[in-house]
Nucleic acid binder design. Structure first.
Length: 418
DNA sequence: TCTGGGGTCCTAGGACCC
DNA sequence: TCTGGGGTCCTAGGACCC
């Protein structure tokens, strides 16, 4: 059940990475700025005015905006300011749900007697983020998460929009369907084919006929959102469902050997994060991208959850072998991705149980995993004390297989309590 | 000269069990 | 004597989000 008053806030830092660059280097203020190089990771509003947007190839952005300044990413500053942003919100309520580094929901139902109305809280939040962090932030205030999110998008840049409960339909009706969370290019095209362009038009359609167009679950969700039925609550401390990593590799021959160094690197990153979070996973998935963006995936669910680098990399390499054998006409690969899911919590200390009542092979396997775990734990410890590059598996330490800095990768991690 | 990296959720079909 | 239905788990692929 959603609260009956408009007490959910969605706060979204404006053009976050680009704004940080403008904060750090005053000469960039007022100028079109892009963060990234080969790909635009973020564009300042001055750059957006030229049509530059996140995800765009760098050469294309430059051609749209010849005066575009490319700023090298200050990744650790993004992390720090993103964390501080969350801390400011937590000064108003513990009920904060972080969506990404620059975006979060908060439910201030229990805070109004301390800090004033939701609108007043939103104004205080914006003021504090501006003065203490030096960053512009847009905030939407509404009765549901969906409405608050749409409101913050409408408020951009650097604005505040409050949707009162009696104005919800009026507010949503003229807006394009693309503003709805979950409507991307594919859904938008299907809706457009039905002559549906605004949320008002969407709300007028029967749920059943909508489901026929976009599928059962998506249709039901879309229908509810368009009609202001959104039962989702703000959830602080959500746990990750999967942990993964991927790496674009240029063009490599489609062989297990060519992928092995990258797989070791990715497995090391994933396993380290799992152990740090005290978690382990049963399902190992791999994704391979071939030329022309065709990609395939393979997955295997193990009997026991694992969190060691070796267990993940070995399984991943076997799966890659299968995937390559089943796609013999593909001669080159351009990306390898790994992911571990079906996560479980792990006790902080793993006990080796020599008399565990398991059949021979299984016992041998778990004993081997225990040994690997002991090795990984001591490696984690060395890295904590002497730095990440101090020690590692040979292949991982040798090859500089990643073209993206680890600090950047970390920005996108969704582990709220990681 | 083709777009990086880390995530969530849904669907369809098969295996297997009752 | 070959056919019903439901549930769970798993895999592969796709859409979407930041």
């Amino acid at each position: 059940m959603a609260a009956s008053a408009a007490s959910i806030l969605h706060a979204d830092l404006d053009a976050f990475y680009a704004s940080v660059e403008q904060l750090l280097d005053p000469s960039l203020r007022g100028r079109p700025v892009a963060v990234g190089g080969g790909v635009v990771l973020a564009a300042s509003y001055e750059a957006k005015a030229f049509g530059v947007s996140a995800g765009m190839a760098g050469w294309r952005a430059r051609s749209l905006c010849p005066d575009l300044v490319f700023a090298s990413g200050h990744f650790s500053e993004y992390q720090r300011l993103g964390d501080e942003f969350t801390e400011v919100m937590k000064d108003f309520t513990p009920d904060v749900e972080r969506i990404s580094i620059d975006e979060a929901f908060m439910d201030v139902t229990g805070s109004v007697h301390l800090f004033g109305s939701p609108e007043v809280i939103a104004e205080s939040l914006r003021r504090r983020v501006r003065t203490e962090l030096g960053l512009p932030v847009s905030v939407g205030v509404a009765r549901t998460k969906h409405l608050a999110k749409v409101a913050s998008q409408v408020a951009k840049p650097d604005g505040l929009v409050v949707v009162e409960p009696d104005r919800e339909s009026q507010f949503l009706s003229p807006l394009p369907v693309g503003l709805i969370w979950g409507v991307g290019p594919a859904t938008k095209a299907r809706l457009a084919a039905q002559g549906v362009h605004t949320i008002g038009q969407l709300a007028a359609i029967e749920k059943k006929s909508l489901q026929a167009v976009v599928g059962k679950a998506a249709g039901a969700k879309l229908s509810d959102l368009a009609s202001n039925l959104d039962p989702r609550r703000v959830q602080s401390g959500r746990r990750a469902v999967s942990v993964g990593a991927q790496s674009a590799m240029g063009r490599r021959p489609a062989t297990v050997d060519a992928a092995a160094v990258t797989v070791d690197y990715l497995a090391d990153r994933i396993a380290t994060r799992l152990r740090k979070a005290g978690r382990a996973g049963r399902t190992i998935s791999v994704r391979i991208r071939f030329l022309e963006l065709r990609s395939v995936s393979r997955a295997l669910t193990l009997r026991h959850a694992v969190a060691t680098t070796k267990a993940i990399s070995e399984t991943a390499l076997e799966l890659i072998g299968v995937a390559l054998a089943e796609n013999p006409t593909e001669r080159e690969i351009t990306l390898v991705g790994l992911s571990v899911s079906r996560l479980v919590d792990e006790p902080p200390i793993q006990l080796v149980l020599p008399f565990a009542p398991s059949p021979g092979r299984l016992r041998a396997a778990t004993a081997a995993e225990d040994l690997r775990r002991a090795l990984d734990d001591s490696m984690d410890d060395l890295r904590r004390r002497f730095g990440r590059s101090a020690v590692g598996y040979a292949a991982v330490a040798l090859g500089d297989v990643s073209r993206v800095p680890d600090e950047f990768r970390a920005l996108a991690e969704h582990d709220p309590e990681g």
